[in-house]
Simulated scan of single mutants.
Amino acid sequence: MPSRADIVTFHDPPPPPGEQRYLPGAGPWTGARVDEPDERWAQWYDVLAERVRGALGWRVLDLQHVGSTSVPGLAAKPIIDIDLVVADAADEAAYVPALEAQGFQLRVREPWWFEHRVLRHTDPRCHLHVFGPEAPEPVKHRVFRDWLRGNADERDLYAATKREAAEAARAAGEHSMQYNARKEKVVREIYARAFAAAGLVD
């Protein structure tokens, strides 16, 4: 289990010298797009979750719909973000081939960041984030999701921030990581309030 300190800390280490997070042929998406809320997003998660559980069975320690599409009423990019926790995210042989058979493709490998992997799916569109049990990110993502679900004012603030960031990123021809950087300040402010409400910080 992750420590409280790790949950409330924003870990963002750069790739070590000579390392790349994206596999050959992969990279950040461009043309930032934020859609109006869509009731189908929850249904898409159900479809994807069934495929993941069908592929991995009891190897799924936890599976959560996270990110903006998991918050009813929140504008979002039309890509389902899912956190998958397995016993050892570094042991790709234990889960990647089975997921590939269900249409997922490994696109990101970040062993320096809690052994994070990302597999992408195209129909429905999905980013499947894989972590081990010690990683704090799945806990952090659930805290943020649940806070937005329960606080309409925070949800609206985040929606406005996302739209503004997407418009600016498109105008500048920026990719997804630059889009994320544009909304980072507000995201961290929301996280701070969510952490405090959860009793994770004083």
Rank of each mutant, 00 (worst) to 15 (best):
E92S: 08
V52N: 05
L157Q: 15
G103R: 04
A76N: 10
A166W: 01
L157T: 15
E174M: 09
R182Y: 00
V85H: 03
W112S: 08
G132F: 00
P78Y: 05
L106R: 11
C126S: 08
R125K: 13
T161F: 01
Y158V: 11
A87P: 03
A181V: 05
E100N: 11
E137K: 02
E100I: 03
D153G: 00
P78M: 05
L119R: 06
T161H: 02
L99D: 10
A160G: 05
E167P: 04
A135H: 02
A172H: 09
K162N: 00
A75W: 13
L74F: 07
Q64P: 00
E110M: 13
E174N: 01
A171I: 04
A172S: 09
V96I: 13
R170I: 06
T122C: 02
R163T: 11
P136A: 06
R107G: 07
E174F: 04
E115L: 01
H116P: 06
E134L: 09
A93L: 08
L128S: 03
P133I: 02
K77R: 13
F131C: 06
P72I: 08
V130W: 05
H116F: 00
E100M: 14
K77I: 06
G103L: 07
D83W: 01
P111L: 12
P78C: 08
D123N: 14
P111Y: 01
L119Y: 02
R59T: 07
F131I: 00
W147P: 02
R149H: 05
A181S: 10
R51K: 15
D146R: 14
L63M: 11
H121A: 14
R120Q: 12
D81M: 07
E184Y: 07
R107H: 13
K183Y: 01
V118T: 12
G173A: 07
A172L: 14
Q105A: 14
R117V: 01
P133K: 04
A181Q: 15
A75I: 07
H129K: 08
V71E: 12
D81F: 06
A98H: 00
D123S: 15
A171G: 04
Y179D: 13
A89F: 00
P97I: 05
W58M: 03
R182L: 15
Q178C: 01
L119E: 09
V66N: 06
A89D: 01
P72L: 08
C126Y: 08
K183E: 12
Y158D: 10
I80N: 10
P136T: 07
V71G: 04
R120H: 06
A55E: 10
H127A: 13
E154Y: 08
E167N: 00
V86P: 03
L74P: 07
A89H: 02
V143M: 04
A172C: 08
L128W: 01
D146N: 14
T161D: 12
E92W: 00
